[in-house]
Amino acid sequence: MADTAVKICGLQSVEVVKSLLHLPIEMIGLVFAKSRRQIAPGTAAQIVKVLQDEAAAGKPVPKSVGVFVNPSLEELELVLREAALDVVQLHGQESPEFCRSVKERFPVRIMKAMSVKDGESRDTSRCLNSYQGFIDALLVDAYDPVYGGGSGTSFDWSALAPYQEWTKKSGIPLLVAGGLHEHNVQHLIASYHPDGVDVSSGVEREGIKDINKITAFVERVKGI
Rank of each mutant, 00 (worst) to 15 (best):
A56V: 09
A56Y: 08
A56W: 05
A57T: 08
A57D: 11
G58Y: 10
G58S: 10
G58T: 09
K59T: 08
P60G: 10
V61T: 15
V61C: 11
P62D: 11
S64L: 05
S64Q: 08
V65K: 02
G66H: 01
G66I: 02
V67S: 01
V67P: 01
V67Y: 00
V67M: 04
V69E: 00
V69M: 05
N70V: 07
N70Y: 05
N70Q: 08
N70I: 02
P71L: 01
S72W: 04
L73V: 07
E74V: 11
L76T: 07
L76Y: 03
E77G: 15
L78W: 04
L78R: 09
L78N: 06
L78Q: 10
L78D: 04
V79M: 01
L80V: 06
L80I: 11
E82N: 12
E82V: 15
A83E: 04
A83W: 00
V88K: 00
V88T: 03
Q89A: 07
Q89I: 06
Q89N: 09
L90N: 01
L90D: 00
L90Q: 00
H91G: 04
H91A: 13
G92D: 02
S95I: 08
S95F: 10
S95E: 10
P96G: 12
P96A: 11
E97L: 15
F98Q: 01
C99A: 14
C99P: 03
S101P: 00
V102H: 01
K103W: 13
K103M: 14
E104T: 11
E104P: 03
E104F: 03
R105F: 05
F106V: 03
F106K: 02
V108L: 12
R109V: 03
R109Y: 06
M111W: 12
M111A: 11
K112F: 03
K112A: 10
M114R: 09
S115G: 15
S115L: 05
K117D: 07
K117Q: 15
G119K: 09
G119C: 13
G119A: 12
G119L: 13
S121H: 13
S121L: 14
S121T: 14
R122D: 02
T124G: 00
T124D: 06
T124P: 04
S125E: 15
R126H: 10
L128R: 07
L128Q: 04
L128S: 07
N129Q: 15
N129K: 15
Y131A: 05
Y131L: 11
Q132T: 15
Q132F: 14
G133I: 08
F134N: 14
D136I: 13
D136Y: 14
D136R: 12
A137F: 05
A137N: 01
L138S: 06
L139V: 05
L139K: 05
